[in-house]
Design a protein around this nucleic acid. Structure first.
Lengths: 201, 201
DNA sequence: TTGCAATTCGCCTTTTATTCGCTACAATCA
DNA sequence: TGATTGTAGCGAATAAAAGGCGAATTGCAA
């Protein structure tokens, strides 16, 4: 069952609102959150999404919308069977499914968010424009880790982190680019990169 | 669970009062804590919340309210908030959570498996040893798609796919490597790559 | 048994959800 | 091609919860 771009926006708004406030939004709040002026439109969206099984709702009850946990496709969830290593000389279908992999293997219990990458500063690291980096929200980092840093409270960038006395060196992984040196006090670490996700069109 | 804004305020008051004093508040204390003037209103709130299973209470007993632990179960959701684009010149924490991303966005309802990549044949494509490619199981491919192919029933490789008459060209993305030419009949397509997942230690 | 807290009742206002009729667009199908 | 279906949107009218009140009543517990 297909989901439209707009419907995904609705779902995302619902879950982020509920996450933040501890209760679900009223239709009016949904409307203003999505830039709609008619409650009828909101109602239609919610009804459609309910019919698609993506959320639950009690009839005529205020703020009764529940976004259902991950809509798992036909089989299983977001967990993929790991079929083995490539170039192993065997037909892929012949390999027994022994392991599996999913985002949970990267996330663990940490607080993680995603960022879409723009620019080439980590190209030699094979992180390129359009990729999503999976970032654990943390304030500290160890030598050489890839981090998301905020410099002078203004520019967010993706770099490798090195400490040099009271200064910090933020090293791009691109031979054509120069490292950034800044006082440690001016660099605010937003998180460190746990993984990368890329989606081909 | 469906909960309204006011109900959450009530719950929050109850748990913080109980936390602070070691005993639950009387209805009068609840009323003054929430700015209410009628105990009937308090009673209605408490009754509603009890019906929703959020707290317990003994009938007609003073200060007998117990706030039940919230079954959160928030972990396990493989869906990550997408906070924005990096290098956009804005503090990451300032960006509103509007979208999200998860493996489902790549998988859809296709049949997908993962393969761990060995070797450098797609290095220029920024797919490197240790990455996991997410592969849709399919028998056909279009010009230029990245596929998993089995050559002569023996070697599974990751290459870009091009048709050239009755032959097939499998093109590595590595300037140091040469393409493989093979009769179409000897090449068995195992699937095509939808995405890449990388996990840092 | 008596006092204080909890419960119940009817009634009111505000908030929220639902429904109706209408336009427009895009994709699909015969 | 034209017809049909599904998504997306508007505003207005209606109905139902949710939230609130004061007063009367009940029921533990000292």
């Amino acid at each position: 069952m297909a989901i439209t771009r707009r419907q995904k926006e609705v779902i995302d708004f619902l879950s982020s609102f509920t996450q933040k406030n501890g209760y679900s939004p009223s239709y009016e709040e949904i409307a203003s959150g999505l830039g709609l002026s008619s409650l009828a439109t909101v109602h239609k969206h919610v009804t459609n999404l309910q019919n698609k099984g993506l959320l639950q709702r009690a009839h005529n009850r205020s703020r009764s919308i529940d976004v259902l946990p991950v809509r798992s496709g036909k089989k299983g969830s977001d967990r993929l069977p790991l079929m083995g290593r490539i170039a192993a000389g065997q037909p892929v279908e012949a390999i027994e499914t022994a392991e599996s992999i999913s985002l949970s293997d990267i996330i663990g219990n940490r607080e993680v968010f995603a960022l879409e990458v723009r620019g080439d500063s980590m190209r030699d690291e094979h992180i390129v424009s359009g990729d999503y980096v999976l970032v654990e929200r943390t304030r500290t980092a160890r030598e050489g880790e890839i981090i998301v840093a905020l410099i002078d409270g203004a520019d967010a960038t993706l770099k490798r982190f090195y400490r040099e006395g009271s200064m910090v060196r933020l090293q791009p992984s691109n031979t054509e680019m120069s490292p950034i040196y800044a006082p440690a006090a001016n660099v605010s670490i937003q998180g460190k990169v746990l993984g990368v996700l890329r989606k081909y069109a």
